[in-house]
Amino acid sequence: MVRDTKFPTRQLLASVGVGAGIGAVISVASSGLAVYFARKIVVPENAPEELDILHIDGFPPNMRIHLPANEETTVRGTYGLYFNQGAGHAVIGDIVEYDPRSRTVSREILSVTRGDIKRAWRGRWTGIVYPEPLAAGVKAEDIEIESDAGRLPAWLLPTDHPEPQDTWAILVHGRASTRAEGLRAAPVLNTLGVPAIAMSYRNDAEVRVESTSRYGLGDTEWIDVDAAIDVALAHGARNVVLFGWSMGGAISLQAASRGRNRRFVKALVLDGPVVDWVNVLDGQARRNMLPTPIAKLTLEMITQPWARPITGLQTPLDLGRLDWVTRAAELDVPVLLIHSDDDEFVPSSPSHALASVRRDLVTMPVYDKARHTKEWNIDPVRWEDDVANFLEAKVLPKT
Rank of each mutant, 00 (worst) to 15 (best):
F7S: 03
L13A: 05
V18I: 10
A20W: 08
I22R: 00
A24M: 14
I26C: 10
S27Y: 11
S27M: 08
A29E: 15
S30T: 05
G32R: 09
L33H: 10
Y36Q: 14
R39A: 06
I41K: 03
V43Q: 11
L54Q: 10
I56Y: 09
N62V: 09
M63A: 07
R64M: 11
A69T: 08
T73F: 05
V75F: 02
N84H: 14
A87Q: 15
V91D: 04
V91A: 00
V91H: 07
D94Q: 04
I95G: 02
I95C: 08
D99R: 01
P100Q: 06
V105Y: 03
V105K: 00
S106E: 09
S106I: 09
I109M: 01
R122V: 12
I128P: 02
V129F: 01
A135D: 15
A135M: 07
A136I: 02
K139Y: 04
I143H: 02
I145R: 02
E146P: 03
A154C: 10
L156W: 15
P162A: 13
P162G: 11
P162T: 05
P164W: 03
D166W: 01
S177P: 06
S177H: 11
L183M: 10
R184D: 13
A185H: 15
A185F: 13
N190L: 07
T191Q: 15
V194T: 10
P195G: 04
N203T: 15
D204M: 08
D204A: 13
D204V: 03
V209I: 15
S211A: 15
Y215P: 13
G218R: 00
W222P: 07
G236M: 05
A256W: 01
R258N: 11
R258M: 08
R260S: 12
N261A: 07
R263F: 10
F264V: 02
V265P: 11
L270A: 09
L270G: 06
W277V: 06
W277L: 03
V278W: 00
N279W: 06
V280R: 01
L281K: 02
L281Q: 06
G283E: 04
Q284R: 12
N288K: 11
P291F: 00
L299C: 12
E300G: 12
E300R: 13
G312Y: 06
P316T: 05
P316Y: 01
L317I: 15
D318N: 14
V325A: 00
T326M: 04
A328Y: 02
A329Q: 04
L337H: 00
S340P: 12
S340H: 03
D343L: 04
V346Q: 00
V346Y: 00
P347M: 00
S349W: 03
A353C: 05
A355E: 03
R359N: 14
D360M: 10
L361N: 06
K374W: 07
P380W: 01
R382Y: 06
R382L: 07
R382A: 03
D385L: 08
V387T: 12
A388Q: 11
L391M: 13
E392K: 09
E392T: 15
A393F: 11
K394G: 07
